[in-house]
Simulated scan of single mutants.
Amino acid sequence: MATSAGAFIWRWIKRIFLFCFISSFLYIIICKWIMPPVTITQLSSLIEGDGLKRDYVSKEDISPNLRLAAMASEDQLFPNHNGFDWKALEKSLNSNPKKKGRIRGGAASTISQQVAKNVFLWQGEGFMRYVRKVPEFYFTKMIEWIWGKQRILEVYLNVIEMGKGIYGAEAAAEAYFGKHAESLTRKEAAMIIACLPNPKIYTVKPISRFVSWKSNWILRQMNNIEDDEDIKSLTY
């Protein structure tokens, strides 16, 4: 009897796993062409009373300055890695003199990992962070294979939180500078990206001390990497 019950439970576990895999795979494919309608982080923002300001735009409507600033600050190796910053990547970059001026960046995760977490999963530290690691690996690899770098960067700059209740480049540009994302200057782009470690605390307007310091660091990094051919292929 116990064996039959165990087999029944195992059969249902496999069915649930298969359903989750197929549904997530289909959603990944859909999001290659259509922006995610809502994310868990955005829903949390509404529930917590921060509001939800967003306006998805195509990559052509996002300033090259913002794309460059994002890579300069968050993931300078983004064009070359396969979603994760492993030692093999460091070895391959060290063998290429053109890449020696590029560093990892300030974020704990690659841009690809941040997209996987923000679009498909949830935020949070502690125990839930470790629970998230396996699905984060899966979604990161899948978007690398299915979306490609241009789409990952485009989605990143549309869904990432850039202020309390402010999501994406267009909403941030409108809120802070009263302009469209395509018109952001280098300094404005650096200021927006500088708040990303904690956009609820590190404010762009009024500018916090951290954003003031970090934006200047980002500007220097933008100057350092902008002539790299791999970076340029994703910037313009």
Rank of each mutant, 00 (worst) to 15 (best):
43 L>N: 09
103 I>T: 11
169 A>Q: 02
168 G>C: 04
121 L>Q: 03
145 W>R: 03
50 D>C: 13
72 A>F: 07
78 F>Q: 05
144 E>M: 03
53 K>A: 15
26 L>Y: 01
34 I>Q: 12
35 M>I: 01
126 G>T: 12
78 F>M: 04
156 Y>V: 07
83 G>S: 01
97 P>M: 00
161 E>K: 06
77 L>C: 05
79 P>Y: 05
80 N>G: 00
43 L>S: 14
39 T>G: 06
99 K>S: 15
109 S>L: 08
71 M>A: 03
169 A>D: 01
145 W>D: 06
146 I>C: 02
54 R>G: 11
135 P>I: 03
51 G>A: 14
27 Y>N: 15
42 Q>E: 14
66 L>Q: 02
132 R>I: 02
159 V>S: 03
49 G>Q: 11
34 I>L: 14
114 Q>C: 04
56 Y>C: 10
48 E>A: 15
95 S>A: 12
71 M>I: 04
32 K>L: 12
121 L>K: 00
100 K>M: 04
112 S>P: 12
164 K>L: 11
104 R>P: 06
151 R>D: 02
57 V>P: 01
85 D>N: 15
57 V>S: 10
125 E>G: 13
87 K>I: 14
130 Y>I: 15
126 G>W: 04
121 L>N: 02
105 G>P: 07
124 G>N: 00
172 A>K: 06
157 L>C: 12
81 H>Q: 03
142 M>Y: 12
122 W>A: 01
113 Q>A: 10
59 K>L: 10
135 P>M: 05
